[in-house]
Structure formats: C-alpha cells, structure tokens
C-alpha cells in the first residue's frame, strides 16, 4: 500500500505568467509512489500548473515544495539536485533532433554521473528495453513515430532514475492501442520502481486506467473543483463540470440539452 509520504506539496499557489493569473488558491499534495493526474478542459491551466511544478515558471505567489525543498527559493545547487531527481516528458517529446535516441538518453547520464561509457550504454539499453525501444537506439528522432517519440521521451525522463516523473499529455495523438501500452508501462513503472507520476491529460480512458488520485481544474473558478479517486469523481453528480467531463456532455446535466 501507499506509504503516504509527501513527494510534492503545493501551498497557496497562484499560477500564471507575470501578472496574468490563470489559477489561484491551489493547495494539494502528491504522495510518493502514486499516479497523480491533473485533468480539466482545454485552456484551464493544466500545462501552466505543470510548468510551475517543474520550476519552468516561478509562482506568482505561494510555494511549490518538491521532495521537501521550495523550488523557487532554492539555491541553484539545491535546485539542480532537485531537478536531477525529477524527470519530465514534454507533450511533443522534445527529443534533441540532432542526436540519436541513444544519445538523447545518454546526455543527462554523461553530464551528471561519472560512470564509464560502457556502463552508461548499458543503462540506456535498460531504459530502452523498459519502454520497448531497444531496437531503435540508433535512430534519429525524425525517424520515430509519434508513439515512439513519447516513449523515447519517457526513457530520457527516466535516465537518472528520478523519484518523480512529470508527463504532459502522454497519450495525446496516439492510437488507442499505443496509448493503452503507454498506460500499462506507466502503471508498471509506478508499481515496480516506486516512481511518483504527475500526469496532465484529458484522455478519459487513460485517466480511468492509471490514476490513483485526480484533481480537476476549471477555467471559470480558476482553481481545483474536484479531488479524489477516479471512481469518486465519476460518481460526482453535484458538480456539472465534473459530470460533463466524465460523461462527455456539453451542457448542464440538469437540463436535457446535450443529452442524446
């Protein structure tokens, strides 16, 4: 069972760019070893929140505490050591196009460890094996399909054996089979290696398959409108936004409009 140790703690976070506030009054915790999913409609600030959580955007106010350290006020050395403990796979994969898949995953290992080259290659091979890309080590990112790129990005995010991995829309643009494979992989990694996952997505099937806990963000209220397990949220008939999201409705459930 989950140990309920806190991996990430968000305190009174106001998220946004400069003076533009997108989300406010955010308070939640992510526990170690769980798959934590952030959902919400398009434009509600999911990716912005993720950027705050990985330190790409400074908080407008409030705190993001990762592995016990406040990211915004940490010294650059402390920040670097936190960043080495987290892995991020961006929506597009963000693989370096001028390097092979192998070199992409090698890069953080070469920069942050003093392991000999042969050991690094073995590690990379293990990561590739894990995501099922062992035969594609010497291909360029341009030669990979969408699903392969996402898996390669995941392998790169895992290169330094981080304790937390952030994924931005891992299954967007993938076919249902590839998407299900990726879900299975994430679940497997969380249970076998105890990695904490923070995933931004709006794929219902994915949310159902992998999430331990969910928070739902909403544009008009600029905050979290629901928290809980997938089952809890699915049964929530009180909140029209949550209901509509899980039932693919386009209007208030209290009216008949939008229902077939």
């Amino acid at each position: 069972m989950k140990q309920h140790q806190i991996a990430i703690k968000i305190e009174d976070l106001v998220a946004g760019y400069g003076k533009t506030v997108i989300l406010e009054n955010l308070n939640f915790e992510v526990f170690k070893g769980e798959i934590f999913v952030i959902i919400g409609g398009s434009g509600c600030g999911k990716s912005t929140l993720l950027k705050h959580m990985i330190g790409l955007l400074p908080p407008v106010s409030g705190k993001v505490i990762i592995l016990g350290k406040d990211l915004a006020s940490a010294t650059s050395t402390a920040k670097n050591s936190i960043l080495q403990n987290i892995g991020v796979a961006f929506q597009s994969g963000a693989l370096f196009g001028s390097m092979t898949v192998m070199e992409n995953i090698k890069l953080p290992l070469m920069e942050f460890t003093r392991l000999p080259d042969s050991a690094i290659e073995n590690i990379v091979q293990m990561k590739l094996q894990l995501v099922g890309l062992e035969k594609s080590a010497y291909l360029m990112p341009g030669e990979l399909s969408g699903g392969m790129k996402k898996r390669a990005a995941l392998a790169r995010a895992m290169a330094l054996d981080p304790s937390i991995i952030f994924l931005d829309e891992p299954s967007a643009g993938l076919d249902p089979v590839t998407s299900a494979e990726l879900d299975y992989l994430i679940k497997d990694l969380a249970s076998s290696l105890g990695i904490t996952f923070v995933i931004v997505t709006h794929e219902l099937a994915s949310i159902d398959a992998i999430s331990d806990r969910i928070i739902m963000l909403e544009k008009t209220t600029k905050g979290i409108i629901a928290t809980g397990t997938p089952d809890q949220l699915k049964q929530d008939k009180q909140n029209p936004h949550v209901y509509n999201f899980f039932n693919r409705n386009h209007s208030n459930p209290n009216t008949d409009k939008g229902k077939k």
Partner: peptide, 23 residues
Amino acid sequence: PEYTAMIELAKTARQTDRKTLQP
C-alpha cells in the same frame, strides 16, 4: 523482491546485441 524486476531487465538488456543495431 523489489529489485528483481530491475535485475531481470538488466539481463534482457545485456542480451541485446547493440552492434547489429548500429548503422
């Protein structure tokens, strides 16, 4: 027991012949 998955993975990864994959 929590390390067995990793050991198994390392075994399979070591079996992959990288030379044949290299262009």
